[in-house]
Simulated assay, not measured.
Amino acid sequence: MEFVGATALCARSEQKLGLCYVQYLGDGDSKDLAAVLQSKPCGNNVDIIKTECVGHVQKCVGTRLRRLKRDIKRTKLSDSKNLGGKGRLTDAEIDQLQRYYGQSIKKI
C-alpha cells in the first residue's frame, strides 16, 4: 500500500509545486520504486534513482547474519567447529560488523 502513497506524493508535488523527485529513498521494498517508475511522475525524460537507507541496510546485514547463525547452529564447518560460540561469530561480533558496514558505506 505504500507505493500508492509514494506515487501520489510524486504526482502531487509535480502538479502543485513544479517539483520533481529524482532520488527515491527506499527501504529495500522494490514494489514502491517500481510503481513510482511506472507512473512516470516527472515525464519520460527524467530518470529516478533509488537510494537505500544506510540504517536499513545495516539492520538487514545483522538480521541475516543472526538468521544464518541460528539456521546452521549445529552444522560443523570445515575446521570441525560451529559457526557460533567463543572465538567465533557472536552477537557482539555481529553488532560490530553492522557498525563497520554502516561506517564504510557512509565514507563512500
Rank of each mutant, 00 (worst) to 15 (best):
F3Q: 12
V4N: 07
A6R: 07
T7P: 00
A8V: 09
L9G: 08
L9S: 11
R12Q: 12
R12G: 01
K16Y: 07
G18S: 06
G18K: 06
L19T: 14
Y21D: 13
Y21Q: 11
V22R: 06
Y24I: 11
Y24D: 09
L25C: 09
D27K: 05
S30Q: 15
A35I: 05
A35W: 08
A35Y: 08
L37M: 12
Q38G: 01
S39L: 02
C42I: 14
G43F: 06
N44M: 05
V46I: 15
I49F: 13
T51E: 09
V54P: 04
V54R: 00
H56D: 04
Q58A: 03
V61E: 01
T63Q: 13
R64D: 05
L65S: 03
R66M: 14
R67G: 03
K69E: 10
D71S: 12
I72Y: 15
K76G: 00
L77M: 12
S78L: 10
G85P: 01
G87C: 03
G87Y: 04
L89N: 02
L89M: 07
D91L: 00
I94D: 05
D95W: 02
D95Y: 03
Q96L: 14
R99S: 03
Y101S: 02
Q103Y: 02
S104D: 00
I105S: 00
K107W: 00
I108H: 02
